[in-house]
Each structure stands twice: as structure tokens, then as C-alpha cells.
């Protein structure tokens, strides 16, 4: 991402912390993503340079796990569970509603990077299906209307 200058020095404490640990690639990436909201290439290069983990391995790992984002995300994160219980109780309708309301596609963000919509599989609250998370806040027994309402309350 050109134009997105980041301060790679922020990663130093993370690399220091995991210096002695074998196989700490995943926690390093998780903590890095906590800082920037995604995994910028400059940060990845920095990790590779200082940890000695090859850049291809870092990308191989980062692209394997659903948790990691290589692109910046919207200011607000909407996660809709499409696990089995939620699926049979109407999760696809929630997805449609949010996509329609905010002009975005599941897995992506709206043009202004205000909202990112993610489909997740099972947050383990199946008894309250369908479930949605808005900026980490869990909502159970959600309907398309109630979800859109919850999102509107953010601003």
C-alpha cells in the first residue's frame, strides 16, 4: 500500500518479546495486526529482516489463516456468523441486509473504509443464533433490521 507510511519501529518490542521463542510467527503477526489493523508490507519486510523468517514464509502463513488481513479495513468491523446454527436461522439475510445498506461485499469494505463486513464461522453462541458482532460487541437473536439499527448506533 503506497501512500500509507507506517512506523515500523512499533514492531520492535514484539520482536524482542518473541526473540527466544521457537515458531512464534503467528503471535508476531497477530500482535503486528493489533498495531496497524492489518499487515502492511513494510511491517512484514521489517519482521522478516529482524527475525530472519523468510518473507515468503510470512506471507504463506499470513494468507493461510483467516484472521490476517493484508489490506486495511474499515473503521467499524461487522462480523456475521454463518455457522450452521446461524445459517439455518437466517444469517444469509443479515449478510444481504448489511451489503445492501452499506454498499459493500462480504469480506470487503465500503468505498470510504467506514465499514468492513466479515463472515465468520461459529462464535460458539449457537443457542442465540443468528449472531453478529459489531466492533467486538456480540448481538444475539439478530434480525436484519435490528442489526442495521445496531450499526447505525455506532456513529
Amino acid at each position: 500500500m503506497s501512500g500509507n507510511d507506517i512506523d515500523v519501529a512499533l514492531i520492535d518490542p514484539i520482536l524482542q518479546e518473541f526473540k527466544e521463542q521457537k515458531g512464534a510467527v503467528i503471535p508476531i503477526l497477530q500482535r503486528t495486526q493489533d498495531i496497524y489493523g492489518y499487515l502492511p508490507e513494510d511491517a512484514m519486510q521489517e519482521i522478516s529482516k529482524k527475525s530472519g523468517i523468510s518473507i515468503s514464509q510470512l506471507y504463506g502463513v499470513a494468507t493461510f489463516y483467516a484472521q490476517f488481513n493484508l489490506e486495511p479495513r474499515g473503521r467499524h468491523l461487522i462480523q456475521i456468523c454463518d455457522g450452521t446454527a446461524c445459517h439455518v436461522r437466517g444469517a444469509p439475510k443479515l449478510v444481504e441486509a448489511v451489503e445492501g445498506q452499506y454498499n459493500l461485499e462480504a469480506g470487503g469494505s465500503d468505498p470510504d473504509f467506514q465499514y468492513t463486513l466479515e463472515i465468520v464461522y461459529c462464535l460458539g453462541s449457537c443457542g442465540l443464533a443468528p449472531i453478529a458482532l459489531v466492533d467486538g460487541q456480540v448481538y444475539g437473536n439478530t434480525t436484519p433490521d435490528s442489526l442495521v439499527e445496531n450499526i447505525k448506533e455506532l456513529d
Partner: peptide, 14 residues
């Protein structure tokens, strides 16, 4: 890089 049917062979930072 990536997984499943979307997996491909990649180089460096993709």
C-alpha cells in the same frame, strides 16, 4: 499462498 482451491505458488511478499 492462500489455501484450498485458491492456493497458489508465490514468491517473496507475493
Amino acid at each position: 499462498f492462500y489455501r484450498g482451491f485458491s492456493a497458489y505458488i508465490g514468491f517473496g511478499a507475493d
